[in-house]
Design a protein around this nucleic acid. Structure first.
Ligand SMILES: [Mn+2]
Ligand SMILES: [Mn+2]
Ligand SMILES: [Zn+2]
Ligand SMILES: [Zn+2]
Lengths: 141, 141
DNA sequence: CAGGTAATGCAAAAGCTTCTCATCATATCG
DNA sequence: CGATATGATGAGAAGCTTTTGCATTACCTG
């Protein structure tokens, strides 16, 4: 992802946009808030305003470069869109996020929509639970 | 639902709480925001503070009397909990909400959680689409 | 119905996101 | 390559939803 992809998306290849794209690509965490991106820029010594981060992320979303998710907790999170849909399972304890696709669930959603008389455009499926990773604060055996 | 149910939930039967419960029961719309509840109270000539509405709705949620949903749009919505789980399909155009349960989807969520090593506690499934009701602004045949 | 405790109302504050507007960078074209 | 027009940025103010602090008031118990 570089200035070329921005141009293709109809966006001027400005320094802030290139930098934000880099943050999204190089981030340890795949799902990051606007604040996360902003702090990462500050840590890297880049001067980008928080308002710009919000603006650019929204533009990226509109352009189909990133996806926005509203997990519980008020703060929206963003991730690069890689061309394939997936859903999320989130740990209540440590916030760890795993991605998944279940074809049966996907298919049944369409059935449900049809039965309800809706032309389905999208969906959001988030499973919440307690993960069993050693790292997780609440995990004991 | 009356003062008795409040007591059983460990909540004092105060006037604001009784009134809010009534609003939730008698509301035209099943899924209402805190603002919706607040305005309904004002319209009924009841003097209840907005902060109290938020506090009480959160207490009701904790007590298992209502459920909170975070649909797109920033504002949380609440509905009375009737003892049975369901998911939602929401119209992008008019906001109309239909409820559904799909046992296959429910079952597969547990499978997914197990495979990911999570003890599932909850989930949120929201399907978005365009409804085909005559009432709907975008619906044309 | 008096006393203790919990709930309320108001206003202030918090948290997240968007907007305004003067300034600045980018793309384009000569 | 430099001038110009256009669009983007940064800083702060503002918006919207939700929470909090605190003095006052209502509920429950006895
Ligand atoms: Mn993801
Ligand atoms: Mn519902
Ligand atoms: Zn965890
Ligand atoms: Zn509709």
């Amino acid at each position: 992802m570089d200035r070329h992809d921005l141009k293709k998306a109809g966006l001027k290849a400005t320094l802030p946009r290139i930098r934000i794209l880099n943050i999204l690509e190089q981030s340890e965490k795949r799902h990051v808030s606007a604040e996360d991106v902003y702090r990462a820029l500050l840590d890297a010594g880049e001067e980008v305003g928080l308002a710009t981060v919000y603006r650019v992320l929204t533009q990226f979303e509109t352009a189909g470069l990133v996806e926005r998710h509203n997990f519980e907790g008020g703060q929206a999170v963003f991730e690069l869109y890689e061309g394939k849909h997936h859903d999320h399972i989130v740990c209540n304890q440590c916030g760890y996020i795993e991605e998944f696709v279940d074809q049966t669930i996907e298919k049944h959603q369409h059935t449900v929509a049809k039965k309800a008389g809706f032309d389905i455009t999208d969906h959001s499926l988030i499973i919440y639970g307690d993960c069993t990773r050693a790292k997780c604060p609440h995990y004991e055996g």
